[in-house]
Design a protein around this nucleic acid. Structure first.
Lengths: 387, 387
DNA sequence: GCAGATTGTTAAGTCAATGAAGAAAGGAAG
DNA sequence: CTTCCTTTCTTCATTGACTTAACAATCTGC
């Protein structure tokens, strides 16, 4: 319901009737409830279609907020977004380093407070805190979400970068009401987040969208995952950096500090016009494009967004290549195109996506999503034969 | 609800409470309704867990039936299945050939009647007719489903082979209650059907699961779809047959009659021990396995079933190769394995799947499935500024 | 045979959504 | 301006799915 209003931007009650299939009566009461809660406002009138003019509705963007946190090796990024997913405050601080978990949590809580107070948003308008973090090194077993919940007093939602980014694009990226979209995320590796009918698809063990290990060359080099020719091994950021280091003409300031910073260095070199660097990126782009086509064919995608720090810096190289591949070879292109776009906020996508997770989880009732996994095989005692 | 009973095989009311999350009261009334309708029967008691013993429930397999029809170039296959998806009658007849659509429909109606009457099943216990057919040549525009509905007096459901086969395996293949499963279907080409949480995923334009055009070699030969190195172009049945025809040692009785029969000939040769034929199939299997890994990684699959006429005859070659690939290189194998199996009824899978479509559509209420695609962008007149 | 545990049913209440009826707002023809 | 029609939006009684609470029915163990 809210998702439909969000997708449309501006819509009337009659528009909602058509979009949702509910009856006028239902829409009427539902909309009034949303208006009473302050989530929706009436913003104007449409031209008449022969009778009474329609009243137009919009999300009340300033009625609720969400905090998104991207915890990474390099640093911690905080954003505060409004109901529309727009960033209203931003903060970047040092990463966790070797600090003690509880110390970091305390610091994060303080920094979140600073973020919220800095723009004078009332605390009770903040719905919660979304957190995106890589599989954390020595934090094994530490209940990060519980601790943060305690320390900040906000509900905490956890997820991975690609899934969060996909939801962030769905929520705020102007994707509209498309049924199936995906976000290609390039950070240290390559991942994909999948959004189907407005809800994220995570798969059996939360690893859906592992596009990094899609095979693009059955006879290619062996990947650490056990397969051959995975995109990540052939064309991921680490592979690009490795090629650059091995390249005779490319003696950049690559010191193997981190994959992310070295990949950025290669991208800068390409932008400066160094053809060797550009070639490396274009080669990578061709493989990534092939993996994107594979994904689009399997899921019958409508929208694909390139996002994450990797595409923030090198998106200009990748976008045309991926777009061309899908225009030329997407299987269902006769039925519909795949809209390939570059995120407008690729570098902060994880943090924004983390905030979107909160908006989604707090505002979309469960029954509008997919049902919970059914815990079958519930202990059943042995059956006895009938008398 | 019915799906949970089906998945469990035998389950008590308390088991249903745990599996569905509903309360005892709800289960009680719901189960009584199902028993009154004859869909479910009480079949025994479980051992006590300290108090009253649980009453065990099962689907009443003989209470309802469904007809599945596979309309193909080679012939028409009919099956009648019971509520459990087991075949109780089977019929194979000549294909449509160049006959007039209305003639074929009349013949099909007669053959369906013969099928049902042959095993003395009451007509009103037959829920409907599922139909699987390839994109039909000159039948363009003919309302096949409506005509069949008229001629047989049964509700008709249409779908494609791979999707139907996947649902058939989900319903009757002993897959149980797994959340995500897929069927790899090999007929004239290669396709995949996806079942997520018991409902089929079709994608934006009904083309989801187009695994035939997953890329397994970014530098491979150009496929008719526009891409390079698609599995179907590199290792599909047609590619295997083409290699066999070009092979110097393999002068089989291949006359290029049809891909299906020629692929079967190659498979028979391999089974006879002709090493050249076996090598061709094993090469194909390696590529198919790689595509299967790609699919499993993207969807985070739990179960993958090989089915369709292609695997019916050559499954023994493909199964171990696919299984090995997924055991060795499936990304999430640490979290859970992918159960790869060969369908027990691979050759009739489309027909059985067609029947399963009926069981699903007639018995699983809409609200338990995914919601309908929302037709957004409903004509909205131009907005006027606020006064 | 009785206490305590467990299973299953019934009855009353809640909540989301609906259909039917009407109120409110506008346009067009006289 | 009045009358009539269309369209939008609301109100209200009803339905259906589900829940809580109380109770009835079985079974085990002592």
């Amino acid at each position: 319901m809210l998702d439909v209003i969000r997708a449309a931007g501006t819509i009337s009650r009659v528009g909602l009737i058509n979009a949702t299939g509910f009856t006028g009566a239902t829409i009427s009461t539902l909309v009034r409830k949303l208006i009473d809660e302050g989530l929706v406002v009436e913003t104007g009138r449409a031209e008449s279609t022969g009778g009474k003019r329609r009243v137009l509705l919009q999300l009340n963007h300033t009625s609720r907020y969400a905090v998104g946190v991207h915890l990474d090796h390099a640093g911690i990024t905080y954003v505060l977004t409004n109901l529309g997913g727009s960033v209203v405050a931003r903060l970047a601080r040092a990463g966790a380093g070797a600090e003690d978990p509880s110390t970091v949590v305390a610091r994060m809580a303080a920094e979140v407070s600073a973020l919220i107070d800095g723009v004078d948003v009332e605390r009770d308008r903040v719905l919660g805190l979304g957190l995106v973090s890589p599989a954390m090194r020595q934090w094994e077993g530490y209940p990060l979400d519980r601790a943060l919940e305690q320390a900040t007093g906000l509900p905490v939602v956890l997820d991975n970068d690609a899934t969060a980014a996909a939801l962030g694009e769905h929520w705020s990226g102007g994707i509209g009401g498309t049924a199936t979209s995906a976000a290609l995320y390039m950070g240290t590796g390559i991942g994909a987040g999948l959004v189907i009918n407005g809800i994220t698809y995570r798969g059996t063990s939360g690893n859906a969208g592992e596009i990094g290990h899609v095979c693009v060359d059955a006879n290619g080099p062996v990947c650490w995952c056990g397969g051959r020719g995975c995109v990540e091994a052939v064309a991921g950021p680490a592979a690009v950096v490795a090629s650059a280091l091995a390249h005779p003409e490319l003696r950049l300031e690559l010191k193997g500090v981190s994959v992310a910073s070295d990949f950025a260095a290669v991208s800068r070199a390409a932008r400066r016009g160094e053809s060797a660097a550009l070639e490396l990126l274009e080669r990578s782009a061709r493989y990534v494009a092939v993996a994107a086509r594979t994904l689009a064919n399997l899921m019958d995608l409508e929208v694909l967004v390139l996002t994450g720090p990797g595409f923030a810096i090198a998106g200009a190289v990748y976008l045309p290549v991926v777009r061309e591949e899908l225009e030329r070879a997407f299987f269902s292109r006769a039925a519909h195109p795949v809209d390939v776009r570059l995120s407008r906020s690729a570098s902060t996508a994880p943090a924004i996506g983390a905030a979107a997770l909160v908006l989604q989880s707090e505002l979309v009732p469960l029954n509008e999503g997919l049902r919970l996994p059914e815990n079958l095989a519930a202990a059943e005692p042995a059956p006895l034969p009938l008398p």
